[in-house]
Amino acid sequence: MKERKNEAVFMAVVVLFWFAQYIYIPFQTTYLSGAGAAASTVGTIVGAYGMAQMILRLPVGVSADRVGRHKPFIMIGALAAGGASLVRVLWCNGVGFLTGNLLSGLASAMWISFMIFYTGKYTAKEQQSATGRIVMFNNLGILLGFTASALLYAKIGMGKICILSVAAGCAAFLLSLLLREPEATGGGYTVRELLCVCKGRQLWMFALVALIQQGVQLTTTMSFTNQILKNAGATDGVVGISSIIYMISAVLFAAFASSEICGKKGPGFWIPVVLCVVAAYCILAPIAGSVPVILVLQILPGMSTGILFSYATSEAMQGIPAEKKSTAMGFFQAVYAIGMTMLPAMTGKIIGVSGIQAGYLVLAGIAAAGAAATVMWYKRCPQKT
């Protein structure tokens, strides 16, 4: 009973944390563009979120393994999520969003501890199912944030939307105080011994898959696709609905990823197939030309977030010793943060010179290359399928 209560509190913290992190996201790009920011500047601001994670995630993972505890890192993450939006409230401009995104990146760097805190109690066979579950609640928090944003943005504006983010971050912090964690078990390895886990080929391979998935998602669905919708004549309300469709799809596909039905095909099937779906989305979204068609297309990146990210995470962690998992997870998340940093900035520059379609075609090529690489990986390593 106590374990169930602890899990319920933890999942509530997860939902509130991601609500705080993403409630302002559907309108971030259009808000900054409307304030006069160039596409390249918007790309840099969006990419700052990933840059902070890229720098911090591996040190956070090593620190968590050394300390042997995760609750303090969860608490820091919740406070940073609320604090980031407090900065956005005080300076609701490009500088404020750049600073806020750096703080949000610090908050998301702590997601390592959220993941290990939850999945660490499950066996190797249960890892994919457990990963799918926590990703589902992660996406549920984002969905609730997007829904609130869609319903309220036109009425209350960006400043008050960010106040709701501050409130959610504070609530997540207060609830995290109630979490129960076993006694600390860290300290058995030196930093060098912990970092040796980062040499694993499988960890590298699926970190790169996640780099593509997360980078493309942040660049398109979370950013420039909203601009495509606005260019096609969509209102702010429709932009919000687009984000809701995407997140409902992500929640449902994450639930599917944790099911036995999905598990029968396995990662060797789903990872390359969904990467091809990502490539198709990048080709179709900028040429759709119709708001209803773009809204339907938002289902496709939901499949990417729900299935591809879950499988990439669980595959990367295969065979990692429990006492080194935070370091491995830190490395994994730091690598995909490179995609969250570089791809928005790169795409913003391409869009500024050659237009949105050119930027999206480059992303489609990257996703297709990832699909080809994973097909080759599973042909060489069929036992991993």
Rank of each mutant, 00 (worst) to 15 (best):
E3Y: 05
K5R: 15
E7F: 06
Y22N: 14
I23D: 08
T29I: 01
T30M: 09
G34E: 15
G36N: 15
A38I: 02
T44V: 13
I45E: 10
A52I: 08
P59M: 08
D65R: 07
G68E: 06
K71Q: 13
A81V: 03
G83I: 01
A84M: 03
L86C: 14
V87M: 13
V89P: 00
C92Y: 13
N93T: 10
L98A: 10
G100Y: 02
L106D: 00
T131A: 08
V135R: 00
G145N: 07
A148L: 15
A150C: 05
I163Y: 04
L177F: 09
A184W: 12
G187N: 07
Y189H: 14
T190F: 04
E193Y: 11
V197M: 05
F206P: 00
L208S: 01
I212C: 02
G215F: 14
Q217P: 00
T221P: 00
M222R: 04
I241C: 11
I245Q: 06
Y246T: 06
S258K: 06
V273W: 07
A285I: 15
V293N: 00
V296K: 10
F331Q: 06
A337C: 07
M340V: 11
L343Y: 14
M346A: 11
I350N: 08
A358I: 04
A358H: 07
V362C: 13
I366W: 01
I366F: 08
I366T: 05
